[in-house]
């Protein structure tokens, strides 16, 4: 046999590249990613693509039906609501709010949960005991109730919604990151890092954290889906933005009153919430499958 140790590296599979390929080969990643991209583009370019001002009222044009109806009003693709506001424009701006909340809330929850999870998993002992008990106590509270209480205390508004989600959902990140950190800590590369003289915090941030990142990406995506729902719930019960601002939850709540005359007022924002949440869940699950075998090998 030829010198096996000196085989040129190019003959071996390049698994990192194939991780990307594996992601793109995963149907859920592609489909979920496409829907997410669609909403993201709508949100980013809202001022350019929205045909009307989302809060502009036209009382002569109430309850205009969507395009599939014979009585549809030209220029109002999804019709208008009880105050004659353009539904399409409101949905587009609603996507802006939904995604902003999803990203910031998931990032805040992820940051808090990851830091505590890393410390608990790596340091163990009393640090782990304190953080783990805290997580358990936290999870004993019903999430929706806790979020309503938090927002009621902090006052309504987008920042309250974001803080409420972060404060409640950090436990999701914390538990998973803690377990993964404990698993990584047992790996020989951590012992090797000790023998080259890296300190404890250096090992945690520079050696372990990068190996937890793929997992964080999955958790982050799933958490965005949860945040979208929570934001919709809170704005449905009027604890998010002022009601004239077009969040999907507010639109659902408003539409409920006119569900007999104009069912599309309620149906369209519900479709948006479901589509975005399903997309995020599919993306998260797909990423989990695509990243797992590579990183665990």
């Amino acid at each position: 046999m030829a010198d096996a140790a000196a085989l040129p590296g190019g003959l071996l599979p390049r698994a990192r590249e194939s991780a990307v390929r594996r992601m793109l080969a995963n149907r859920r990643v592609v489909l979920g990613g496409a829907v997410l991209l669609f909403f993201a583009l709508a949100a980013v370019f809202a001022p350019l693509i929205a045909p009307h001002d989302p809060v502009e009222q036209d009382l002569l044009l109430q309850y205009a039906p969507p395009f599939w109806s014979d009585k549809a009003e030209p220029g109002y693709l999804f019709g208008t609501d009880n105050l004659g506001r353009d539904i399409l424009s409101r949905l587009i701006y609603g996507a802006q709010i939904a995604l902003f909340v999803a990203v910031t809330a998931a990032a805040a929850a992820g940051l808090l949960g990851t830091v505590l999870g890393l410390l608990a998993g790596y340091l163990g002992g009393w640090v782990d005991a304190v953080i783990s008990r805290l997580v358990e106590i936290w999870m004993a509270f019903p999430a929706v109730l806790l979020s309503i209480v938090l927002v009621a205390v902090m006052g309504t508004g987008l920042h309250s919604v974001i803080i409420a989600i972060a404060v409640i959902d950090w436990t999701r990140f914390c538990r998973v990151v803690r377990a993964e950190t404990m698993a990584q800590k047992q790996q020989d590369y951590v012992a090797s890092a000790v023998t080259v003289g890296l300190g404890r915090m250096g090992i945690l941030w520079r050696e372990i954290l990068p190996n937890v990142l793929p997992l964080l990406l999955v958790l982050f995506t799933l958490e965005m889906g949860i945040a979208v729902i929570v934001e919709a719930i809170l704005s449905y019960v009027n604890l998010s933005l002022a009601s004239d601002f077009p969040t999907w939850g507010t639109m659902i709540a408003d539409g409920r009153k006119y569900v007999n005359q104009a069912p599309w007022l309620m149906i369209l924002p519900i479709v948006c919430v479901i589509a975005l949440v399903l997309a995020l869940n599919a993306l998260g699950d797909g990423l989990k499958d695509a990243l797992d075998p590579v990183m665990r090998k």
Binding site: D188, Y189, A191, S192, V196, E207, P210
Partner: peptide, 19 residues
């Protein structure tokens, strides 16, 4: 460590950081 002491570990498959 490093300048005074070093280690050649038992299992090369897991002793390098995969990241």
């Amino acid at each position: 460590m490093g300048r005074g002491l070093g280690l050649i570990p038992q299992d090369p498959m897991t002793s390098l950081n995969p990241a």
